[in-house]
Each structure stands twice: as C-alpha cells, then as structure tokens.
C-alpha cells in the first residue's frame, strides 16, 4: 500500500509536465491567434470564430482519440505523451485566444486615444499602455484555466500516459483499495490547485497595485 501511494505521488511529475507544456503552448500561440479576431478582414475574423467554436465545441476526448488513433491510421504515429500534449495544447491555444480577446475588450478606447494623443509609436503604445493592462485583466482567468488544464490532463490516462490517474488505475487493478487510492489521487489534484490559486491572487494584487489606472 505504502508503495502504491509513493508511485502515485511520483506520477505527479507527468501530470505537471502535461499541464505546463499545454499551458505554455496556449499562452504563447494564443496571442497570434487573437490577432485574427482583431483583424479588419471579415474572412480572417471568420476563420478565428470557426476555429475557436470547432476546437471548443468538441470534447477533448474526441480530439485526443483523433490525435492518437486517427493520426496513426494516416501513418502519423505519435507517442501517447506527444498526442496528449498536442491535443491539450491546441485546445489551450483556442481557449487562451478567447481569454485574450476578453481582456482586450476590457481595455477602453480612451487608452488607445491617449496613446495616439501622446504620439506614441505602435510598439510603445502596445508595450507601455495596452500590455500591462491586458496582463492584469487576463491573469486571474488564465490561472483558473491552468487549474482546469491540470484536471483535463487526467484524460491522458485513457491513452496510457503514465500520469496520476493512469498509475492509480494500475495500482487499484493489482491491489484493490480503490476508494483510498482514487481519493489519494484526488487529494493530489486538490493540493496542486490550491497553490496555483494563491499564486494567481498574489500576482493579481501586485499588478493591480502597480498599474492602478483605468
């Protein structure tokens, strides 16, 4: 039993690897995607809307199976871990783009006008005026989403990535004690999401203090 607890706890590494890689992919690549939503071209905006609705309108499990079984059928054989990162990453891109879009919508038109009035360049306007406010606006939502990703990463167990839920399933199969072991797995998720919440609150408070404009 004690060994089972240790093995499950050790699988936390894989869970965190999945969560962090998907989050980074989303945070970085969501930014260029949201530019499509801000574009003057109706076609580009349309592409954005369709992409976001299709990616988020289908359960993650379907994308995971397409990335793992479907691509293999087409001759693209990915390891389970890569399929899981790819799936969670693409969903994270669409979600983060939506979060950025919400953040941009919260910035008042007057902020841009003030920048123009001071004849700031485009880059300076973005870097000194828009980004700090955007960062502050999206940080709580992003933190909440990363906690969501942490829980979604459990899906990877279905295609055999040895993260928390997969290892717990194996241990329960050989030892029984399903209740204790799955509760333990659940406690790890709770324990991981609490510090994330605290960190996000601290960051938010700091940012609000530094840029208390609007």
């Amino acid at each position: 039993m004690a060994e089972a607890f240790l093995l499950i706890a050790a699988a936390t590494g894989a869970t965190l690897l999945l969560t962090v890689s998907a989050a980074l992919i989303g945070i970085v690549l969501g930014a260029p995607l949201v530019l499509l939503a801000q574009s003057r071209s109706a076609i580009l905006r349309g592409i954005y809307t369709v992409f976001v609705h299709v990616v988020r309108g289908v359960p993650a499990l379907v994308w995971l199976f397409i990335a793992f079984f479907g691509l293999a059928e087409l001759g693209i054989v990915l390891p389970a871990l890569a399929s899981a990162v790819l799936t969670l990453g693409i969903i994270a891109i669409a979600t983060m783009a939506e979060i950025y879009r919400g953040g941009l919508a919260a910035i008042r038109q007057g902020q841009y006008e003030a920048g123009w009035a001071l004849s700031l360049g485009r880059w300076s306007l973005a870097k000194d005026i828009i980004f700090p406010q955007l960062f502050r606006a999206v940080s709580p939502t992003t933190a909440t989403y990363i906690v969501g990703l942490l829980k979604d990463s459990a899906l990877a167990s279905i295609i055999g990535v040895p993260e928390i839920v997969y290892v717990t399933g194996l241990e329960v199969q050989s030892l029984g004690h399903g209740l204790e072991l799955f509760l333990f797995a659940g406690l790890i998720y709770l324990a991981l999401s609490i510090p994330l919440g605290v960190v996000s609150r601290v960051i938010h408070v700091r940012l609000t203090r530094r840029y208390a404009v609007l």
Binding site: L155, G178, L179, A185, G186
Partner: peptide, 16 residues
C-alpha cells in the same frame, strides 16, 4: 477533482 477521478472513484472505488 477531475471528473475522470470522480467517475473512477464511484465506479471502481465504492465497490471496495
């Protein structure tokens, strides 16, 4: 808890 863990807790945990 991930919904997956809730499902497994009920389906494979409670029988014990």
């Amino acid at each position: 808890l991930p919904i997956l863990v809730l499902l497994l807790l009920v389906y494979r945990g409670l029988p014990s």
